[in-house]
Amino acid sequence: MTIAGLYNYWIVILLMMTGFYVVISSGNLVKKIIGLNVFQASVFILYISVGKMSGGRVPILQEGVSDYSNPLPHVLILTAIVVGVSTTALGLALVVRIREAYDSVEEVEIHQQDESL
């Protein structure tokens, strides 16, 4: 039963680590940001998985239903998704400016240009 009960969390950790790997191993700034987004979405899935109750229903109240899944994580993640895309846009805007200043989005080339100054 342990495997079935913890499967969601393990896959979430796998996704998290995939995103983390992209962030630390890739030299391309756009890909790093996509990696951060993969990480972020995995955290969303973790929160929503924790809020799920077996036998629970969608938390929109109706007659004759007493068990609802936990609405609190839904609220947190709902706002986090929109905040996430705004901050992603800010990061991508920085990448665009870096590209205009250095003519590259590869970390190695940017470092080289900084050192040759």
Partner: peptide, 12 residues
């Protein structure tokens, strides 16, 4: 208020 939805979704 009555179904899924709200300001964040509608704005997007």
């Amino acid at each position: 208020d009555f179904g899924p939805g709200g300001g964040f979704q509608a704005g997007v």
